[in-house]
Design a protein around this nucleic acid. Structure first.
Lengths: 184, 184
DNA sequence: TCGCTCATGTAATGGGTTACATGATTCA
DNA sequence: TGAATCATGTAACCCATTACATGAGCGA
């Protein structure tokens, strides 16, 4: 539900669609992401539902921008979503696991090289969670010092990313080792 | 791509849509899932593309069934997909993390009880990976002993589920502990 | 001069969920 | 008697991606 991600961010402060995507990329990118086109489409839908309102601001030496502000109805919708607990186990989808599952056992070398490529991708992501992500939290706090208490929650989600990538790397290393022994 | 999951399963043996969903639930459910309606729709699409063919079989005291068989073109499409490496970091989506991120810091109690509910869900899932999942692999091997080499690959994906749930539980426990101290 | 940042959107298509519609057999 | 299993599908809708379309300013 990108809808709620946008409402959550607009609850911090009014922003344009372009700015929203910037925040998504540095903060919620860990657990939710979107394309700019979807951000604009969703904002339009939110405005139609009365959850946000917008106005156009002219700028010097930059294009005009449309700034979105959350409404009371929008705050209520957000609070409602936050208060609704998730009671089912959320199912993940992972294309790599699908390939591992269905690879033909005689394609051992191709599989192992795909796993080694993944290892590099996940190691890079891990160092991002350890370096860029804490910096992004600091940046957000610098812009909005009143959100200090929120930083603990942001940190918890960053920490998830760190633990997830650590686990993924451990699984890749274990799998590379055991499959290289087990497959013919 | 449910398409490739279905081709992968049909490469083991010919099956009906209903049977395919049964296998998805006990084997690939870990990394890919689908609704029955989507399975039927995707099979129809695959048949239109020439990747599978089907025929109807009459049964005693059961409804007629339509059995799908993979074609040479389907095998080629599957091999092609398997050979194409994933070169980008796959982005996950997680509704719980979204809620943690955007929860108001003064909703501490509501948040903690949502995290405790999740803890139970993930603990149940972990024991499923430790009990039902190995049994399902044994079951698949009993039905198709010629797939013995595939079992190493299936086990690798089962192991991912086990490690993922273990990590998720550790994160939940850590977050419950630290947030209950940090939030007011 | 080339690519990046800022800035906005629409249209077509694809992938997936929910709801609808049907019906026999078997087991508790 | 009621629920579960077996068995098939369609239609409407929602969410998301890709492609298209435009354009100024700035720094290398």
């Amino acid at each position: 539900m990108l809808k709620f991600i946008l409402l959550g961010l607009l609850d911090y402060r009014a922003m344009t669609g372009y700015e929203l995507l910037g925040w998504i990329n540095v903060s919620t990118g860990n657990f939710w992401h979107a394309k700019l086109s979807q951000v604009y489409a969703t904002l339009k839908q939110l405005e139609g539902d009365g959850d946000v309102i917008s106005h156009v601001e002219a700028q010097e030496s930059k294009p005009d921008k449309r700034v979105y502000t959350i409404t009371e109805a929008g705050r209520a919708a957000l609070a409602d979503w936050l208060a609704t607990p998730i009671t089912e186990h959320e199912v993940k989808k992972d294309g790599l696991l699908a390939k591992v599952f269905f690879t033909s056992p005689d394609e051992k070398d191709a599989l192992l090289s795909q796993l080694r490529l993944q290892l590099k991708l996940h190691q890079d992501k891990l160092s991002e969670y350890r370096q860029e992500a804490p910096a992004a939290i600091g940046q957000m706090l610098a812009e909005q010092p009143e959100l200090a208490m929120h930083a603990y929650l942001w940190e918890a989600t960053r920490r998830f990313g760190e633990m997830y990538e650590t686990m993924y790397i451990a699984w890749l290393q274990e799998s590379i080792r055991t499959l290289s022994e087990q497959l013919p």
